[in-house]
Design a protein around this nucleic acid. Structure first.
Lengths: 267, 267
DNA sequence: AGCCGCTTGTGAATGCGTGCACAAAATCCG
DNA sequence: CGGATTTTGTGCACGCATTCACAAGCGGCT
């Protein structure tokens, strides 16, 4: 049975960290079976990985402002998390802090980059050059660099060969060979839902192990392929649920909880 | 202290959805404090809400194919989850199945729509009409309808008044009044990161309680406002982590886990 | 009418993630 | 040089989420 993919939101939920939980098996992720095989790197929880990426962004903002060190408290509030959680997250990747002082911004940045595999460039392909695909292609190397877009694909004959963001569009039938030739590590699917599964199959054929899926379908992939899903409609529907819940709350009189909420307390 | 937002992806690891975990406080979500205040609706876990939206999509696909009933097993595999989990999720919203038979597609569809608040239309505003904003505006009423885009905003003077997807663009300074006048429920932020917080503040000022944020920043909002974040760079970095992990796995010889994985077993 | 097979709904158990609280450590100051 | 202060790193406990396993219930068949 093919592996199921994770949501782009979630998690963890209010942020989603929707929830980054493994469908079956353990959620720890640094070795498929728990990775107690070797001494170092004792499994980083998926949820922690997502947050590390957030910390990384906050850290680069701080570096631009000239900060040299940060305390866990500062970093945590800037990233919108609990300071204990932040320290625990950082402890998964090693001990790079100085007690009584804090963390060196550049050291921490490098270490997170290393763990996230950002030291190597990951060639990325975008499939489906519609509105969204256009937007993605024009990022031209995603934020923070490290994700150069090196291939574009579509079915539309009028688009084939036309340069978008400086890169000519190829036909989706050529996905396998082009991906293999250009060593594509990550495939981004921005096609209509009906085409997504076929495109995904071709990407896998071309040796792509990681897929970011914007199409509103559940992709079936082999076990070794990692899929993350970003689904606009689902995000909106989750928000809609909260609107409905709040409306219901107000509708039947203000409860203690509602009162606490409007007093600014965290509930 | 402002509430923290959830990830659109959340989190999650190899398989299922992102866990969408709440930044702080309980994960159950149907009443800020647990909602045992009233008899019905005894708190739907955040993670379950995200999955309900997925089920909804799968159900409409099945309805189009003419299915009248589905078993939990069918629906679960189509949605990429465990059937036990699916049944538990559905049990949160009531008991609409028939033992020995399954669920009626249209009944289940209606009930999920009801719980998610999709019976009422949620007016939506898009702020920042760049590449992404354009793509969003042209959806023109998001998938499944129920989310009509009824306002567009930008700073660019050349864009003000120009119709995009049939709707004229307003200036972001007018956000508060326009949102209030048009009864906007959901605000979508697709601006550059530097502008996001200011835009968010104006949306809140205009009475918006739910925000979908595409800008790569952590927004600070009052407690009563719900924020969900969709962050492309973070999704890519999470995938990058998995690439790095897998490369490392292969690099140091095939472990038992790696072997199991390539045999097609779920690990 | 009664039995059989199938599928739902849920109680219970397990596991993961979060948050608390404190010991360890390092700097600063007297 | 020793104590006070600050901040990290982590053991522990709690709670949600997931999964298992089974009783309850419904339809069909004889």
């Amino acid at each position: 049975m093919a592996r199921v993919q994770r949501d782009g939101g979630d998690d963890a939920a209010p942020t989603t960290e929707l929830p980054a939980v493994r469908g079956q098996g353990p959620a720890a992720v640094n070795g498929p079976a728990g990775a107690q095989g070797n001494g170092r790197a004792r499994a980083i929880p998926e949820a922690a990985v997502a947050r590390l990426a957030v910390y990384l962004r906050v850290l680069s903002a701080m570096a631009e402002q000239g900060s040299v060190t940060v305390s866990s408290e500062e970093l945590a509030t800037a990233a919108g998390v609990n300071s204990a959680k932040l320290r625990k997250d950082l402890s998964y990747i090693g001990t790079y802090g100085t007690r009584g002082v804090g963390y060196e911004v550049d050291v921490l940045t490098s270490e997170i980059q290393r763990v996230l595999g950002l030291t190597r460039q990951q060639n990325t392909a975008v499939v489906g050059i519609g509105n969204l695909g256009h937007a993605l292609a024009n990022y031209g190397g995603f934020p923070g660099r490290g994700f150069p877009v090196t291939a574009l694909f579509d079915v539309d004959p009028d688009l084939i060969g036309v340069p978008v963001g400086g890169l000519p569009v190829c036909h989706i039938d050529d996905i396998p060979e082009v991906c293999a030739a250009r060593n594509i590590a990550i495939g981004v699917i921005a096609t209509p839902p009906a085409a997504a599964q076929a495109v995904c199959n071709r990407l896998v054929e071309g040796g792509v192990h990681c897929v970011l899926n914007f199409a509103p379908v559940v992709l079936q992939v082999p076990d070794h392929v990692e899929v993350r899903k970003v689904d606009l409609a689902i995000e909106l529907q989750i928000l809609s649920f909260h609107v409905a819940r709040n409306a219901e709350q107000r509708g039947r009189g203000r409860t203690a909880a509602a009162r606490a909420s409007s007093n600014g307390e965290v509930v």
